[in-house]
Simulated assay, not measured.
Amino acid sequence: MPYSLVLNLIPKSPIPTGYLTGRHLHALFLTLVSSVDRNLGDRLHEATGNKPFTVSPLQTKKPSSKSRKHTLQWQHKKFIPANTNCWWRISLLDDNLFGELTQLWLNINPDQPWHLGPANLNIISILSTPKSNRPWVTSFSYQEIYENASDSQRIITLNFATPTCFRQGSYDTPMPTKDCVFNSLLNRWDKYSGMEFFEIPLESIYPSYLDINTEIVTDSRSKFIGVIGEVSYRIFGDIEPEKIKQINALADFAIYCGLGRKTPMGMGMTRRRSREVGE
Results as ranks from 00 to 15, higher is better:
residue 65 S to P: 05
residue 118 P to W: 08
residue 113 P to H: 11
residue 57 P to E: 02
residue 64 S to V: 02
residue 59 Q to E: 02
residue 80 I to C: 08
residue 30 L to V: 08
residue 13 S to W: 11
residue 28 L to N: 03
residue 31 T to C: 06
residue 61 K to R: 15
residue 74 W to G: 01
residue 29 F to D: 02
residue 35 S to T: 11
residue 90 I to K: 00
residue 85 N to M: 07
residue 5 L to F: 06
residue 5 L to R: 06
residue 117 G to E: 05
residue 30 L to Y: 10
residue 88 W to F: 01
residue 30 L to N: 09
residue 43 R to K: 15
residue 35 S to M: 11
residue 23 R to K: 14
residue 13 S to C: 11
residue 116 L to W: 02
residue 11 P to F: 10
residue 19 Y to W: 14
residue 75 Q to R: 13
residue 11 P to V: 09
residue 110 P to E: 08
residue 80 I to S: 07
residue 35 S to W: 11
residue 51 K to H: 05
residue 32 L to Q: 07
residue 73 Q to G: 06
residue 16 P to L: 12
residue 114 W to T: 03
residue 23 R to A: 11
residue 31 T to I: 04
residue 59 Q to W: 00
residue 20 L to G: 08
residue 72 L to D: 01
residue 23 R to D: 13
residue 51 K to W: 03
residue 109 N to K: 12
residue 39 N to C: 08
residue 39 N to D: 15
residue 118 P to G: 11
residue 42 D to K: 14
residue 71 T to I: 13
residue 76 H to V: 04
residue 34 S to M: 06
residue 60 T to P: 02
residue 27 A to L: 09
residue 61 K to P: 03
residue 29 F to L: 13
residue 73 Q to F: 01
residue 12 K to T: 09
residue 79 F to C: 04
residue 16 P to C: 14
residue 48 T to I: 13
residue 111 D to M: 14
residue 17 T to M: 10
residue 92 L to I: 03
residue 117 G to W: 02
residue 34 S to T: 08
residue 6 V to C: 12
residue 87 W to M: 00
residue 74 W to R: 01
residue 75 Q to I: 05
residue 105 W to M: 12
residue 23 R to N: 14
residue 65 S to L: 13
residue 46 E to F: 09
residue 13 S to D: 15
residue 88 W to P: 00
residue 41 G to S: 09
residue 98 F to R: 13
residue 40 L to T: 07
residue 84 T to I: 07
residue 41 G to Y: 08
residue 26 H to N: 15
residue 95 D to W: 06
residue 16 P to Q: 12
residue 77 K to C: 07
residue 47 A to D: 06
residue 54 T to K: 02
residue 104 L to H: 04
residue 74 W to Q: 00
residue 50 N to C: 05
residue 55 V to S: 01
residue 50 N to I: 13
residue 88 W to Y: 01
residue 21 T to I: 08
residue 58 L to Q: 01
residue 94 D to R: 09
residue 50 N to L: 12
residue 43 R to Q: 15
residue 13 S to E: 15
residue 79 F to E: 13
residue 12 K to V: 08
residue 76 H to Q: 05
residue 76 H to M: 07
residue 65 S to H: 10
residue 55 V to Q: 03
residue 30 L to Q: 09
residue 37 D to M: 10
residue 105 W to Q: 04
residue 89 R to I: 00
residue 84 T to L: 05
residue 80 I to K: 07
residue 34 S to E: 08
residue 113 P to L: 05
